[in-house]
Design a protein around this nucleic acid. Sequence first.
DNA 1: GCGGCGA
Length: 294
Amino acid sequence: MEGNSGGGGGGADRGGGGGERGGNDVELVCKTLQVEHKLFYFDLKENPRGRYLKISEKTSATRSTIIVPSAGISWFLDLFNYYVNSDERDLFSKELQLDSKVFYFDIGENRRGRFLKVSEASVSRNRSTIIVPAGSTRDEGWAAFRNILADINEASRLFILPNQQSSEPSEHLVGLSDDVGAGFISGHNQPTSNSDLNVDRSVELPAQEEIGNMGVSKVIRVDQKRFFFDLGSNNRGHFLKISEVAGSDRSSIILPLSGLKQFHEIVGHFVEITKDRVEGMSGANVRTVDPPQR
DNA sequence: GCGGCGA
């Protein structure tokens, strides 16, 4: 795999046919991936309307492109992790809704092997599809694709300048909390089994230097314990780390953001059913040390 | 050196 990261906003589109609509778009990252005889181009681009990832599949005969809004890149990463890591028997179709677009992920198989079909459907444009071969051994085609997505996801984060007020970080949270349709939808009539996406991930601890980069932290103090809430990300995606610190003991759980909404709902459930008890007891020793909420 | 998709 040849990973060229060509930065350079200058004179990128040259030599005929390169320029897409919106010639102002700046290329932040360009990568290519060869899987069997297909070539995939990954272009992270930015224009005044925002940032997006263009993924093109090229074969000798066909050329096909999907456009992933920047908020969807980490979702794509999560989904490819799911298809790489899950047992072959447990693979289902998935849907990912972002703004007005819907991406469909479907497994297929023919005599050439297994493949993952990723289709983009939007109101305005025709449906477009790329097909990623699983690869001959251990899904290495999907894994390589996943690795590129991880690189780009990371790079996209780094391209946010520290003093630049970008809407990027909140974008992820907005997509999770506001939009009912955002996130994964099981394609088959399986009961909602989003959790199977997360199972193996909570095992891996993030690299320490990744933590605290996103500048969103909260602390609460309960009795002798403190709980730290930190957003972070690693090559497997974005997560919320919740650390319990009591004396010299410390332990953490890593919650992928794809599970945050469910987590919130469950916590809300327990808040509700224990409300009387908590208010009955003195709530005095439970308090937030953060700026008060509005 | 494949070939899927969907028209």
